[in-house]
């Protein structure tokens, strides 16, 4: 690991001021000389591996604003401060009661130790675990733009089938983000050019020609809060995560489902897919296919077909298409069977 400067700002505005500079708008946050660190569960690992090489780290754990560490629940929203730990949110009974999908997407992620360290703001910004991205001797368009993609013709069992490009097929591995994108969450962002509120669905960028640009954030912008609107579908919601082992593994396929039902009929469905896409993946085609239909095995299957209509498999990950569909079918039926 290279030596770096470590500083501890005590307020959001101080952190932003320390991070701003000409570079903050020129390069993506992941390539900036100054980077923020919270739980460090992903960044510290990637610094050791040489994947990312900040000159300076700003530790957000010393920020004084209490709201950063609070979960606020009222009649129509759940608001998570960005420094709330994953474990804390996963274990919050009110979060679980109001929206099981949120709690489960956190609980099924990582391990207890990691959940106790990782912040929610950092969690949604975690980077891909593509093996070729993690190991710096391979070419990788995300790590070194223009160097090529070793995964495309390489070992790509865990790679994405949705939202890929000719430059990158790396999976977005997070779980919580699938819940957020399904539930129309927003993020509060503060930066040197002011505050803004962004739809969570717009936070991550598909790889396209520039897989190194992963989010809409500038290097001097901080996520301060995540807000999830509560709606008729929130309580009948579920996160189903299918993986190679029972715990402590990334999803091969996952489905975040929230349903507003009128008897047997779907009034409104919210669906996102994980483990199969390059970014948190809202499956609007599947939602549309269910709208106004009686939810049964057949309509669930139609929705799943719609969700994966544009899927593009590579040599080792073709199984993710049938697996992704069945994961969604199972999640829809299990969610239907929940009490509304």
């Amino acid at each position: 690991m290279r030596p770096f400067v470590y500083e501890r700002p005590t307020s959001v505005s101080a952190a932003i001021a320390m991070a701003s500079g000409p570079d903050a708008v020129r390069v993506p946050p992941t390539g900036a000389d100054t980077q923020f660190i919270a739980g460090g569960t992903n960044l510290a690992d990637y610094m050791k591996l040489g994947v990312t090489r900040p000159e300076r780290l700003l530790d957000l754990n010393t920020l004084a604003e209490p709201a950063l560490r609070q979960i606020r629940i009222d009649d129509d929203t759940i608001r998570f401060g960005a420094l709330v730990r994953m474990g804390e949110a996963a274990d919050n009974n009110d979060v679980r009661r109001r929206c099981p999908l949120l709690a489960d997407s956190l609980k099924f992620a990582a391990s207890g130790q990691l959940r106790n360290m990782a912040s929610l703001g950092g969690n949604v910004l975690q980077r891909t675990r593509c093996e070729y991205f993690r190991e710096i001797s391979w070419p990788c368009n995300k790590r070194e733009p223009g160097s090529g993609c070793a995964a495309m013709e390489g070992s790509n069992r865990q790679h994405a089938v949705l939202g890929t490009s000719d430059a990158c097929i790396a999976t977005y591995h997070g779980d919580f983000a699938q819940a957020l994108v399904a539930l129309d969450a927003t993020v509060d962002i503060e930066g040197s050019r002011g505050r803004r509120k962004l739809a969570f669905a717009k936070l991550h960028r598909r790889p396209g020609e520039t897989p190194d640009i992963e989010t809409d954030l500038a290097a001097d912008e901080l996520i301060t809060a995540i807000e999830v609107p509560l709606a008729p579908w929130s309580s009948r919601s579920r996160y189903l995560k299918i993986r190679d082992r029972e715990s402590y593994a990334f999803a091969l396929a996952s489905a975040a489902v929230a349903l507003d039902m009128d008897g047997e009929t779907v009034r409104s469905a919210r669906i996102a897919l994980g483990g199969v896409a390059t970014v948190p993946w809202r499956a609007r085609e599947a939602e549309d296919a269910l709208q106004g239909k009686v939810l049964d095995e057949a309509t669930a299957q139609e929705a799943a077909e719609a969700a994966f209509a544009d899927a593009r498999p590579r040599e080792h990950n073709a199984f993710k298409i049938p697996l992704g569909k069945r994961t969604l079918v199972r999640a829809l039926l299990e969610t239907r069977n929940m009490k509304g």
């Binding site: 093996e131 865990q158 082992r245 715990s247």
Partner: peptide, 11 residues
């Protein structure tokens, strides 16, 4: 050990 899988307690 992230990608080289061995059983965890839950398995």
């Amino acid at each position: 050990l992230q990608d080289y899988l061995v059983p965890v307690n839950a398995d």
